[in-house]
Amino acid sequence: MSNGVSHTDVKVVVNAVGLTKADYRGNPSTLCQGCGHNSISSQIIAACYELNLLPEEIVKFSGIGCSSKSPFYFLSRSFGFNGLHGRMPSLATGALFADHTLRGIGVSGDGDTASIGMGQFKHLLRRNMRLVYIVENNGVYGLTKGQFSATADQGLELKSHGINPYMPIDIAWEALVGHATFVARSFAGDPKQVKELIKAALNHNGVAVLDIISPCVTFNNVDHATHSYAWGKEHETALHELSYVPRAEEILLEYDEGEVREVELHDGSMIVLKKLGQDYDPTNREAAMKVLEESNRCHCLITGLIYIDPNQPSMWDIYQLTETPLNRLREDQLRPSRETLAELNRVFQA
């Protein structure tokens, strides 16, 4: 071998289910270079790989827009459905009923969620469908070349559209008010936090909303805008440093007593939150509202797990389905017997 490395020495690194990281990749991205969305796709890949999830056990969903193209750029071995603008929640809800053993990842954007999709977004939260709902939030319409979205800052000035006169919609706030059982905010420029939040979200028994500020390098990377890299780096205040710990793993992280808060998920896994200055309790909805309101007032970007309620019943708990996935039931399990129809006919007869 010319490079001096013998063939047998090449080590293929695999995870506990025998897959390489490449098995989690998607097709090459056609989004802009430096787009925050690509960074989030990478963290989805890393999270699934590190959690030892089989790609075949994940289903990807999206609506319409730049963000919604991204599921094609990760997890090629997972089924995906790129649906209609703002109506991915309904699509995902119906599809996931086909096989309750699967986990859903939905990727949306601020245009997709905060405008046409607001209704379905809110109703998804009410039902607590088991779905990771990521909003790649850049405050701007990219594919149609740079119009203000509903999450754009009031007073933001963009090249061809002047100054935005309207108040922004806050996705995390809407999620919290809408009774989401997992609400997080992160920043595409903070990959470690994004990854840990995705891991925790994937193991949450219900809907998990991740509002990820994901700068648009082409149309909205004005330094003073809250959806830019510069502003995000400058203003990010993490509520805590967090790690997701699967049930099987021992907690190896060492923190001084009194600095750590653990939240147990339904399957026994843990989210470990390391205190950063402030003493924040993410299971307290009132406190979560307060912290969001304060961050808006002081114009800073609060990131981390804002709220979690691991105990609410999910849609699976409510619907009581057969253990066999519905899409594998046989005809004799789906068509009632001849005798039952004869009985019904007797009731309607003269």
């Binding site: 109506r87 309904s90 119906g94 996931l96 009923f97 086909a98 379905q120 109703h123 519905l326 899409n327």
Partner: peptide, 18 residues
């Protein structure tokens, strides 16, 4: 919540094999 969602769910379920 409305017909938009009703059909979205039904399409999702039909796609999933139901």
């Amino acid at each position: 919540e409305d017909e938009l969602a009703a059909i979205g769910m039904a399409i999702g379920a039909g796609w999933g094999g139901l």
